[in-house]
């Protein structure tokens, strides 16, 4: 099943050069993480050494070798957000979800990460959850959003 899904993505890249990162990003988007099967399958289909795939997958922050939660909560840790209280929003998110930054909750509902800059610096602190942006976030608002998602 997963292999069929993977093959569909890999098919787009057969015979092209320099595709590894783009391919992994597509898989990440589709499956929400890079499972071991994906690494093996890429190796089988495209002949890229497993070590190279792991090296790339572990280098970039957008790629995850561990499963991610249904809601990926990304708190901006860029400078503009930081000086306007981003750390406190992150603390509130940790507290509300009950995990540390970089972790995934055991029910696979939430993953919490920081991101270097989302480019909405004028509205800091900014939080992004599955592509939806929240500007001028406060710790209180953060907790409310998490609670809403939890019961959703």
């Amino acid at each position: 099943m997963v292999n069929a899904q993977l093959d569909k993505i890999i098919d787009k890249y057969v015979g092209k050069e320099g595709v590894l990162i783009q391919l992994l990003l597509d898989i990440q988007r589709e499956l929400n993480w890079i499972p071991k099967e994906a690494v093996t399958r890429i190796n089988e289909r495209l002949g890229i050494p497993v070590s190279d795939i792991y090296r790339v997958a572990s280098f970039y922050t957008a790629l995850s070798l561990k499963p991610r939660g249904k809601y990926l909560v990304r708190v901006c840790a860029g400078t503009a957000c930081y000086v306007r209280g981003g750390q406190r929003v992150l603390d509130a998110a940790e507290q509300a979800i009950g995990i540390k930054t970089g972790e995934t909750s055991s029910d696979l509902k939430f993953s919490l990460e920081t991101v270097n800059c989302l480019g909405c610096c004028a509205l800091g602190p900014v939080v992004e959850i599955n592509g939806k942006y929240f500007g001028t976030a406060t710790p209180k608002q953060m907790k409310q959003i998490i609670e809403r998602k939890r019961s959703a």
């Binding site: 840790a77 860029g78 400078t79 503009a80 957000c81 270097n116 800059c117 480019g119 610096c121 004028a122």
Partner: peptide, 8 residues
Amino acid sequence: DEGDPGAF
């Protein structure tokens, strides 16, 4: 690749 935090 505008990676500088604080630049958009």
